[in-house]
Amino acid sequence: MNTELQLKLQSYVDGELSASESRQIADLLARDAEAAALVQQLQNTKSAFANGELEVKLPESREFYWSKISREIERENRQPVAAAEPSLSLWQSLQRLLIPAGAFAALTLIGLVGLFALRTTNQDSFSVHYESDNAVADADAFTYNDEENGTTFIWFSYPSENEFTESDDSLIL
């Protein structure tokens, strides 16, 4: 007997077949002893269950059993937010990931901008000195500018055309 027929016979015993299928099986049982024997066995088992289950009693007192249930209910009532946390939506989960990542990216950007600004400032101050150094537009002269005292010193590596003294090679402007 194949599996399909076995399961069909079981469906017949359980009343899960249509009226026409049930009639077909009834006809089969009248001429197939093996099928009829299987149906008989399935019906015997089914009728044994119809006598009900073994009675099982809760092995705890009513008070003790209830006390654990009421405690748990009270605990759940106290923590409604905590209980709702595990059921985060996809968007909420993404937010949890994106917020710190976004903050990190923003800090990195601020750092880069700051670094760039610092480098630009350094270049500017260098160019001031550079301009200062080249204020005289003479490759053989060196200039020192003291803004506090409003004084600029220029050293020439060669003698000036209008020297005040021969020993002094600096000019005070």
Partner: peptide, 21 residues
């Protein structure tokens, strides 16, 4: 092989429930 003899026939209800359990 199919056994058509009912193994629970004649059993008192309490005993039958115990065996099933």
């Amino acid at each position: 092989p199919v056994v058509t003899i009912n193994p629970t026939a004649g059993l008192e209800r309490g005993e039958l429930r115990q065996r099933i359990d």
